[in-house]
Design a protein around this nucleic acid. Structure first.
Lengths: 197, 197
DNA sequence: AGTTTCATATGATTATCATCATATGAGAGA
DNA sequence: TCTCTCATATGATGATAATCATATGAAACT
């Protein structure tokens, strides 16, 4: 691969990264191809040298957003088992995450729109969700009441819902309360005290 | 008020009802004024005799969607206190609700878009959320560990998140698992056994 | 150096919609 | 019955954006 196409790949990557941020901020319909290109330092016309259409870009951007999923799950893995669940909740349901959707969880940012998008979108969504679920199961296996899978799906639901609502309300007070309550609510789910049971 | 303007009000109401269903199905951006009017049995031109603009319609449609909130909360009120939380979860997080977004919860359907819409939208959202929270607090008061408000906010987060995710994934199996896991996860939150404590 | 290739830029094109302007026609009051 | 009003219909208009067509210019190869 020559220097030429290497640079093109870099440009493509730059477009994807820009799109990944913008799409989480603006949503799928709200994402404008020209804005993405401008954010990547290019003009709109070059877009179709890199992608067949906007949908292809969105798929790539969505996946790109999960490159940092490990930051979340990986940091919980370093905790002792009985603290993992609350660590997950406490690092996801934060004002900082709420206020930076462009670098935050893509499920919270895009689930609603993926739900009605046709084509490959639902499968793409499911694949990424599946990976998250698997990671969470590894993390929680044998540590919670009920099956780890059940806890994993429950935690994801609570996190996504709490974030979506916290972003939608007007007052900072209520928004913060939503985050805090969701954190606490999720911790009401019992963690096994005896790891050998 | 003469017959004339009475009929106009009825027409207006028909438009709002149509919009309320369509907007939950298609989203705010996805909602087309012409589609709403067609669904109400009219043509697009008449729209501006009823509303100043599309935003005004969406506000009205959003509120309209909550006319049936009592079906959900009210039916839980008939249950003994210790069953209320699980009743809420079990009636919200259902495949039936998932498959009929046009008549379902407007928070789950519209929160993401309200979050980025400017103008009055965030305040409107917050007002309706506040009402729901108040109703839930009345329902749960003194019945759960922790404050009723905290439980109310937690339940709402879990419900909305579970529904949004269940609607976004491709496979019915995973979707059903999400609903079921969220139901169970939420019930892990302890209900007081002794009502007089 | 001369030519070719191709990544990117510039300038259409086309579709979709919200919104506006004007027309129509049925009912209300004279 | 004859106007007049106004709810609704029909037909613009204008903006926005995806996508396409063509131009350009720098690097790669001869």
């Amino acid at each position: 691969m020559g220097k030429r196409s290497e640079e093109k790949q870099e440009t493509r990557q730059r477009i994807i990264v820009a799109a990944s941020r913008l799409v989480r901020q603006e949503g799928i319909v709200g994402l404008k191809v020209a804005d993405v290109m401008a954010a990547a330092g290019l003009t709109h016309g070059a877009f179709y040298a890199h992608f067949a259409d906007k949908n292809q870009l969105i798929e790539a951007a969505f996946q790109e957003a999960f490159d940092h999923r490990e930051n979340w799950i990986g940091s919980a893995r370093k905790r002792p088992p009985e603290e993992r669940l609350s660590h997950l909740l406490n690092t996801y349901l934060t004002p900082k995450h709420r206020d930076a959707p462009e670098q935050g969880c893509a499920f919270a940012a895009l689930a609603r729109e993926f739900a009605q998008a046709g084509g490959e979108f639902p499968r793409t969504f499911e694949r990424e969700l599946g990976v998250s679920v698997d990671r969470l199961i590894e993390l929680l296996e044998g540590e919670t009441e009920g099956s780890a899978r059940q806890t994993a799906l429950g935690v994801l639901s609570l996190c996504v819902g709490g974030m979506v609502l916290a972003r939608a309300v007007d007052s900072p007070k209520l928004s913060n309360d939503l985050l805090k309550s969701a954190r606490t609510f999720g911790q009401g789910t019992q963690i096994k005290k005896d790891k050998n049971q």
